[in-house]
Design a protein around this nucleic acid. Structure first.
Lengths: 237, 237
DNA sequence: ACCTGAACACCGTTCAAGT
DNA sequence: ACCTGAACACCGTTCAAGT
């Protein structure tokens, strides 16, 4: 009973960085960040743990490569229309949804901002900003605000999902937060208390886009002389 | 030579959660997140590693408590003026600067949004939003955009600083990113290439505040009927 | 060139034993 | 009630040895 089916000398699935990254993504999606160990990966790939180091330099490298693959995929399938505003929304939403499906990506994106997927994301947002009516001197800040916002929400989602994988878990987490918030002192925490109700029923995706729209609105109005806000002048001091 | 100075029975510094958290913050600030181990902590506290577990349930608990202490401190010293816009800017800047000094806080803030420091931060931003001219239905989204933006920048800073502690390291990191970006194909990465120059000389703090101002501008103008932007109507589809 | 898997150093956490 | 520190299970990484 010990005899295994013999391959013809060579193994069918040669080990490669692509295959390693693909299996890593499977493990990350299925069981979360803590489940990705070199031992689990080696077992799944039917090889020794040391073999992985031939193709991947490091665990950091593995995680970065996995995150970049997800983002590159998301960026490749984004439908960028003619309208720059719509393009920015579509790109941001594409990254948001990719991270929604693969929450572990959120924590990885920011490090190593020279990976192809991250670069595509950065450049696409930048192209949208250029296409808008934003003066050149303000473009860097506009780009930074958009990118930081997207990554902020991404990180938030990642942290929320880190506890345990699964959909039920997320709503349970929100329910837990909401019920804690409801027990706060009304005098001291009026706003947060009021948030609790809405926390249970809100649509993440919609709220994310509302934030993008807010930044875009500020961008357009801050730059137009016929509708200048005093928000851009330092208020007070 | 072996005789240690004998204390009078009781040890002078009783172990307590406060003292553990204080030493943990010292280690985190000095040598980064990777350096905080229960062994290092126990050595610094001159006790056994197991003793820490009597006061702290977990490493997660320890990190969350440390982050919350930093944020609570920052919130306590924020000077909130009368002007709601100035208050929001001051609160955001307070959190930004706290995370700038203690970069490891960035990654921790989001989890456990019921710790006192985090709650104070949430409530303060919420109070600012309420004080602004924002319709009640839009308050949740406005609050979310502001908080997410602050946490996004915070996370970014945390990731940048994670590589190694120290000031020189940060500028070296930015220099590395800039020089990589400059080698990109000008046809494909026009915007990111242009960013490289500005990346070296930009002021983090100023850029952070510019993002806050952008959201505030969008907030004011999106809500006013005399200056409605078409950014809030779905453009395109 | 690429793979194997035992070995190493190190970690969070537990727990019987002490005071 | 609180502290001690050895022990346990587990991890990333290395490396001599194989093909």
């Amino acid at each position: 009973m010990k005899a295994k089916p013999r391959r013809t000398g060579r193994r069918v699935d040669t080990l490669s960085k692509e295959r390693i990254v693909a299996v890593a993504i499977e493990i990350l999606d299925a069981d979360g960040e803590a489940a990705l160990t070199f031992r689990a990966l080696a077992a799944q790939l039917e090889t020794g743990s040391g073999a992985i180091y031939w193709h991947v330099s490091d665990k950091d490298d593995l995680l970065a490569a996995a995150a970049d693959w997800v983002i590159a995929q998301a960026m490749a399938t984004v439908d960028v229309g003619a309208d720059p505003r719509g393009a920015i929304r579509a790109i941001a939403l594409g990254v948001f949804e990719a991270i929604d499906v693969h929450p572990w990506v959120g924590a990885q994106l920011i490090r190593e901002p020279w990976r192809p997927g991250t670069l595509r994301f950065f450049e696409s947002i930048g192209a949208g900003v250029m296409a808008l009516d934003v003066p050149e001197a303000a473009q860097f800040n506009a780009w930074s605000a958009l990118v930081n916002y997207v990554l902020g929400v991404a990180g938030q989602n990642a942290a929320n999902a880190r506890s345990l994988p699964g959909e039920t878990n997320r709503s349970a987490f929100l329910e837990g937060v909401a019920s804690r918030w409801e027990q706060l002192d009304p005098a001291e925490y009026r706003f947060v208390r009021g948030l609790a109700r809405q926390l249970r029923s809100h649509d993440d995706r919609e709220q994310f886009l509302a934030g993008i729209d807010l930044i875009l609105a500020g961008l357009t109005h801050g730059g137009r002389s016929d509708c200048v806000s005093n928000a851009n002048k330092r208020s007070g001091r």
